[in-house]
Design a protein around this nucleic acid. Structure first.
Lengths: 202, 202
DNA sequence: ATCCATAAGTGCAACAACTCAACTTTTTTA
DNA sequence: TAAAAAAGTTGAGTTGTTGCACTTATGGAT
């Protein structure tokens, strides 16, 4: 039995008609959802309504997305690669924590010349508690992968406790700054803390 | 109008008959809930069932507890005092991060000679994702208070960004160690990181 | 002693998110 | 071309949670 069902890592090529159609419905659902959410707010749009708008039954909807929150983070699937690359491919001389700092600052910036839909998206997530929590939980799932890369880069054992701690803290840093006026400041101090501590490790 | 409705901080004295009865029903609900949860697991006990067991309507139940998870953390209300005290009253010469480390280690230890109901409680929380998350979110609500105390103790401005970062990380440390065999190790390394970083701050 | 505003509690119906089981249609592959 | 497999539908059910209209008890003021 030839296995053409798996998509090779980053390759987004849907091969059979089947998978193309599946991807299409999925996209239709996600699009309808995001449109409605942006129009009227996350909490004021029900599942049924989204399903109707995408011309799909609610059961079908839940076959594509496990929970309501997931409808929003459809595209945000592969940020892990970028995260790990930020550590691995950092300029020589830059410490691991500093590489993570730079990535954290670069990552969630609604830069003014990008398309405004992205800004609206960030605003939506940031202003909806359920989405914030879901996103953060999603983000933390990369902890072990990040810890492993840090271990490699610093010549420590793959399951080193210090690496695990650093990884977790680095991923939590943006969350620490939430709901404060001086987001940038807090993130900077947070990584100062981590950088100093990391250096002081034997 | 005399105000006898407020309870002075830590004073658990219900004065009027009314408040006594209210506290009684609340207790009855919480007891029934915890008993059922321990018997059959959190997810396999419904709200209606708990309400029945406590001989109360579901509406009444939700007037005492905002969400299902809150039924479990009835007594765990005032841990903040202990947390802040651990920083303020630390032995002379001990750094703030180290005081927090000690508190973290002391706090969530199901010490073997305590009553086994507490151990069962910890096991329940630890094995139920919904409860873990709720508990962590609850715990993080002390961030600002902790940050303020740290600021006082270290002669920094009350809203200092570094203090906010340290406070958040300290409260996250136990969470970082979750789902790992070497909890103790990770917590220790985490606070090593914070201690080293904190010293290296100008 | 009594009256009344208020708060606790009830019953019931509803909603939203999600699940389940049985069934139809389409596509793949053997 | 037949059959295995996957996508989708339908419809009814479960669970946490809320709203509404209503009763009962309590405590303070008259």
């Amino acid at each position: 039995m030839p296995d053409n069902t798996h998509r090779g890592g980053t390759a987004p090529a849907p091969v059979g008609r089947r998978e193309r159609k599946k991807a299409a419905t999925r996209q239709a659902i996600a699009d309808a959802a995001l449109r409605l959410f942006l129009e009227r707010g996350y909490d004021d749009v029900g599942i049924r309504e989204i399903a109707d708008a995408a011309d799909v039954s609610t059961t079908t909807l839940f076959k594509h997305f496990p929970v309501k929150e997931a409808l929003v983070f459809d595209e945000e699937a592969d940020l892990e690669a970028g995260l790990l690359a930020a550590v691995r491919d950092r300029p020589p001389g830059r410490s691991v924590p500093n590489a993570l700092r730079e990535h954290a600052l670069r990552c969630r910036r609604a830069d003014p010349d990008g398309d405004p839909r992205f800004a609206a998206f960030l605003e939506l997530v940031d202003s909806t508690p359920a989405l914030r929590e879901y996103h953060q939980a999603m983000w933390l799932r990369h902890t072990t992968a990040l810890a492993r890369v840090i271990a490699e880069e610093s010549g420590r054992p793959a399951d080193d406790a210090a690496c695990a701690a650093l990884a977790h803290f680095a991923l939590e840093a943006p969350h620490a700054a939430r709901a404060r006026g001086d987001r940038r400041q807090v993130i900077d101090r947070a990584f100062d803390l981590l950088d100093g501590g990391w250096r002081s490790l034997a």
